[in-house]
Amino acid sequence: MTSARRQRILALTPRERLAEQWARLGITPDYRCVRGPEVGMAMVRGRMGGTGNAFNLGEMTLTRASVQLMNDGVATDADTELGHGWVKGRDTRHAELIAVVDACAKRREWQADIEEGLVAPLEQALDAERHEQAQRAAATRVDFFTMVRGE
């Protein structure tokens, strides 16, 4: 699984569910915050009809964090153990948790556990919720048709 896909799934998952699933894995890394977590703004861009010229739609609140894993209280030198997390809104704990998961997923000994025990179940839950919402919306769908007059 790519890092971008993992980041997307973790950001879309509610923090409580993510924290619960993370605790079940039993991975408790020692880490330090390199940046943040900090709240800021990001410009959201749009396109007319999805294909037109891009324009600035507005700003949204964004929280980001970066963490570095530690080995026996000492920061590692490798950039491979640096994790980043972004989430919409002001939930600093969510952004920090995503960054920790991202950093841990770069260690070979935890990579499979994170992908199979954390990200895959969260992705399935998101897909199930999306499917349920689609079914609820489909139940309200109205099909219009034109009757031909018999002249």
Rank of each mutant, 00 (worst) to 15 (best):
E59T: 15
E115H: 04
V39N: 10
K88N: 07
N53G: 14
L118M: 09
A105L: 00
A23V: 01
L12E: 15
R17Y: 01
L10T: 05
E116M: 13
R24S: 02
M60S: 11
Q21V: 15
I114A: 10
R93F: 14
R8P: 00
R108V: 09
A78L: 10
R8E: 12
C33S: 08
G83Y: 06
G49M: 11
W110R: 12
P37M: 06
A23D: 01
A105M: 00
W86H: 10
A54P: 14
L82K: 09
D30M: 14
E96M: 11
I27S: 08
G58D: 09
R45A: 02
A99G: 03
E20F: 03
L126G: 13
A75P: 14
A11M: 04
D91V: 13
T28W: 03
R35K: 11
V44L: 08
A99N: 04
K106C: 07
V39D: 10
A75C: 10
V100C: 05
L82T: 09
T28E: 13
I98H: 01
M60T: 15
G26D: 04
V87S: 08
E16G: 11
L57I: 14
K88F: 12
R35F: 04
R107G: 01
Y31P: 13
E59Y: 13
W86P: 00
A120L: 15
Q111D: 06
A103Q: 06
M41T: 11
A125V: 10
K106N: 14
H84V: 02
R15H: 15
I27D: 03
A78D: 13
A95F: 07
L62V: 15
E123H: 03
A54W: 09
G49D: 09
V67P: 11
R108W: 09
W110G: 08
